[in-house]
């Protein structure tokens, strides 16, 4: 028929299977790097500013109004969520079926999770003094994120994603116990820095 009907040796065949499989995975699987970088920057900058506002001992390190700090944090997180949604939906991907359905449900889990968290924080935050209210917002939102990362790891069997979520959950708990300043510092460096690092490591790995 044509030249590719020529018989391959077992070595060549195995190499073909590996190369073609890797090429297909590379083309068809979503690239997770923008997702990790967007969340990393959002947390690093957002919680960093919140940390400067609170200070570790209760005295601010920089005169940043709380409204600005929170607007920055939640604004950047909303942007990061958009990046994740675009990653999940895989616009332009030729693949249809269960993995698309899974991605859509997972995306909705984020929306509903954040909606519920927002309602709880609005309702109870009003009864708290300022720094505690900020901590309520910050810790609740990070709890939702941590749980969804662990769930994502379980759904797609991505162990690093699960471990990252579990780490976030622990850091979030420790920070909440320690107070607003510590929480902001741990989230900025641990969650933000960790996510940027994960994104950079993944990018290097995927480029190879």
């Amino acid at each position: 028929m044509d030249e590719d009907e020529r018989a391959l040796s077992p070595e060549e065949t195995l190499r073909l299977i590996e190369q073609q499989g890797a090429a297909a995975v590379h083309r068809l699987m979503p690239n997770p790097v923008p997702h990790y970088l967007a969340w990393g920057v959002a947390w690093f900058v957002g919680f960093g500013v919140l940390f400067l506002h609170h200070g570790l001992a209760g005295t601010p390190y920089a005169p940043i109004p709380i409204g600005v700090a929170l607007a920055l944090l939640f604004g950047l997180m909303a942007l990061a969520m958009l990046v994740s949604a675009l990653t999940m939906w895989q616009l332009g991907s030729p693949v249809r079926g269960v993995s698309q359905e899974r991605g859509v449900m997972y995306g909705f889990a984020w929306s509903f999770g954040f909606f519920a968290m927002w309602m709880i924080a609005v309702r109870f935050g009003g009864h708290l003094p300022d720094p505690e209210r900020n901590l309520l917002w910050a810790s609740l939102s990070m709890m939702v994120v941590a749980i969804l990362y662990m769930a994502g790891g379980a759904i797609w069997l991505i162990r690093p994603m699960f471990v990252f979520g579990a780490g976030l959950a622990v850091l979030n708990a420790v920070g909440t116990a320690a107070g607003p300043g510590w929480h902001a510092l741990l989230m900025s460096v641990g969650a933000g820095g960790g996510s940027v690092a994960a994104g950079l490591v993944l990018r290097r790995r995927l480029r190879r």
């Binding site: 073909l16 299977i17 073609q20 499989g21 297909a24 995975v25 068809l28 030729p94 693949v95 249809r96 079926g97 269960v98 993995s99 698309q100």
Partner: peptide, 15 residues
């Protein structure tokens, strides 16, 4: 090989 990388239940458009 290419089709085998898709999880069961997924399909790919011809183009």
């Amino acid at each position: 090989v290419t089709l085998n990388t898709l999880p069961e239940g997924d399909r790919i458009a011809f183009p």
